[in-house]
Nucleic acid binder design. Sequence first.
DNA 1: TCATTAAATTGTT
DNA 2: AACAATTTAATGA
Length: 243
Amino acid sequence: MNSYTRLRQSARELNQDEIALIPWLAGLSPPEHERAIAALVVSEVAPGDCICRIGRQVTYWFGLIDGLLKMSNDGSSAPALTFTGVAPGGWFGEGTAIKRESYRYNVLALRKSRVTGLPLETFHWLLDNSIGFNRFIMNQLNERLGQFIAAREIDRISDPDVKVARSLANLFHPVLFPGVGSVLRITQQELAYLVGLSRQRVNEALSQWELAGAIRVEYGGLRVLDLELLRCAGQDRVEPPRG
DNA sequence: TCATTAAATTGTT
DNA sequence: AACAATTTAATGA
């Protein structure tokens, strides 16, 4: 069928809007830019699909174009622990890619997503040749360190309202996930999977934060009105709306 | 373009 | 976990 062919082609190519969403391209020289674009591959993944599995050898540095992913440990031995979500515009696996190791975590799709990958060979070529690229990676590693520390703290939080708020703040991280504007397309079910709470509890938490003026709940997603309120939730002065 | 129907998502118990 | 209410997406005239 030619509709199948069209679908395949559109799935394999990036349009201009999507290319503009790749944050590290901006710091590249024209020849570097050209080489990077030529090397990028795109694929569609279905909900539940694994982008990378623990122990698998790394072949690409991955970026999320559209959709929603989550990074977690293996649920087989220990209880499943979600590290963090990956929102559009986010790139991950650079640490593993640099060391040419195998993955220490799973990344799977929470819904139908478009993922793009930079082959390891090109990744290392850019590391060896592009100062702009190195600058981006360095910043990325630094930001991610902060994010993982935050994730650790979130795990210890007992108050579900606060937990939801902090997880949301992480997803709206402007440096790690530049593709997320003021609206994040995420269903309450997906958010529940991400933070490890029931959907109805997440629903209640979202209602509370809407009441507090931090977010606006919309169908199939939500809009952030006050990111600082979410980020500082549970800290000294700022009380969750519940009290 | 509009009306109808199915599917997805939400709000509640 | 189950239910009804609401919103979106799909379909066909």
